[in-house]
Amino acid sequence: MEIFEVTILLLDATFRVATPLVLAALAGMFSERAGVVDIGLEGKMLGAAFAAAAVATTTGSAWLGLMAGIAASLALSSLHAYACVTHNGNQVVSGMAINIVVAGLTPTLGFAWFKLGGRTPALNGDERFSSITLPFADAIGNIPVIGYIYAELISGHNIIVYMAAAAVPIVAYVLFRTRFGLRVRAVGENPHAVDTAGISVEILRYKALAVTGFLCGIAGTYLSTAHGAGFIRDMTAGKGYLALAASYSENGSQSQLCWPVCSLPLPTRYRRDFRVLNYLSSV
């Protein structure tokens, strides 16, 4: 029975840790599919994390924080688009510049505004996205296996975890079943084909990067206002790069995308979750 419980705990934690990676990887995939390399995922997430925490602590609303996070990430995304799409700049340089600027700017602004050594004040209550208990979780929680899985694994996450779960099929639908998706996939493969079809490559890439910014904004907000309770400098800790790697390893179909995204959190998981580590070493 212990193996079962540990597995559930492991999966439960995987959901939580995977959320920002899934969102950021989907974000990275949009820009990658549109033919723009975005190594600025890290910076966008970090910027969003800071903006979300700062606004949440000031206004007392996690939802306003989410808006601010998305807005910050969209702004950085537009900057990337302006440099790379409008002015044909080097995509790696622009992305790296965003990462560096944000890494420096967030603790500086944090220090100037909150005087806490670059952090934002700890968030509590409505300033954070708290766990949601799904209906009947308490009622059926005692049923062995199924009830336990429902109560422990499916229920009890915050809203953004469920958003990330919903984002996967939504993104797959948009990318493979809609006009916008078709055009995004085409512009990444052969921009000339899109151009000759009478579609503006520039506007299309701006749109794709806006989606990237939107998803990254949610991912960053999750880090500071849902998973954590406030902004800490460099709190993305390379998650943007992990997500970038995941978004690159897909090539072709939807199903192939799932594997890297799902498997990525595992190593992070083992490293972080001491309970699992202890269990594994005791076997």
Partner: peptide, 15 residues
């Protein structure tokens, strides 16, 4: 000016 990874149909309707 074709997208190699698309089907003929997808290429034709693009745009």
């Amino acid at each position: 000016m074709l997208v190699d990874t698309f089907t003929v149909l997808e290429n034709i309707i693009l745009g």
